[in-house]
Computed example of a mutant assay.
Amino acid sequence: MRAFLIRSAFTGLGLWIATLIVPGVDFDFGDLTSWWEKLGVVLLVAILFGLINGIIKPIVQVLAIPLYVVTLGLIHIVINALMLRITSWCTDNVFPVGLQVDDIFWSGVFGAIVISIVGWLTALLMKDRLENMYR
């Protein structure tokens, strides 16, 4: 559980960095003004993004196996952008605050690249060890 929360925090950092770098990817905080409330929104969106990546993404990846072969794996970036867009759709329709992604191309693709780079750096910092999984 601790590893999931730490990864979610790093995913939130990746989402926040993506909103700073990529035009078209923004957080909608609504009427929230407190820094802590905004941090809570970022963490909740990161947890939702992690759940979507854990549940929907494997199904999409299995269905897209022929596209992985044809595109030599570049479809993975588009699938990541799709997961980002699904997260945006979920937060738009369920919560009054959340993530805003204008479109899958190019905002979603560039945002997915930024989040993937932060995720890669997270994987370098946090090695999957047995003791991390059960604490």
Rank of each mutant, 00 (worst) to 15 (best):
I75C: 07
I65F: 05
L74F: 15
V60E: 01
L84D: 04
I79K: 03
W89Y: 13
L39C: 12
V42S: 13
I75E: 05
A64D: 00
A46Q: 15
T71H: 05
N80I: 07
V62Q: 00
W89S: 12
V45Y: 09
L43H: 14
P66Y: 03
L82P: 00
V78N: 03
P66S: 04
V42I: 15
I65N: 01
L48D: 04
Q61W: 00
R85K: 10
G50N: 14
L43S: 11
Q61N: 00
M83R: 05
G73N: 13
S88N: 11
H76L: 13
T71P: 05
V42C: 10
I77M: 12
V62G: 00
G54K: 07
L82Y: 04
V62C: 00
I55E: 01
L44F: 15
V69C: 06
L74N: 08
G73W: 11
L39K: 10
I56C: 07
T87M: 05
L43R: 11
I75M: 09
V78G: 01
V70W: 13
R85P: 00
N80D: 10
L48N: 04
L84E: 04
L44N: 13
L74E: 07
I79R: 03
L39H: 10
I52E: 09
L63D: 00
K57S: 05
V45C: 11
A64M: 04
I59N: 03
A46S: 15
Y68H: 08
L63A: 06
I55R: 02
T87K: 05
I86T: 06
W89V: 12
I55F: 08
V45D: 09
V42R: 11
V45S: 10
M83T: 07
I79Q: 02
S88K: 08
N53S: 09
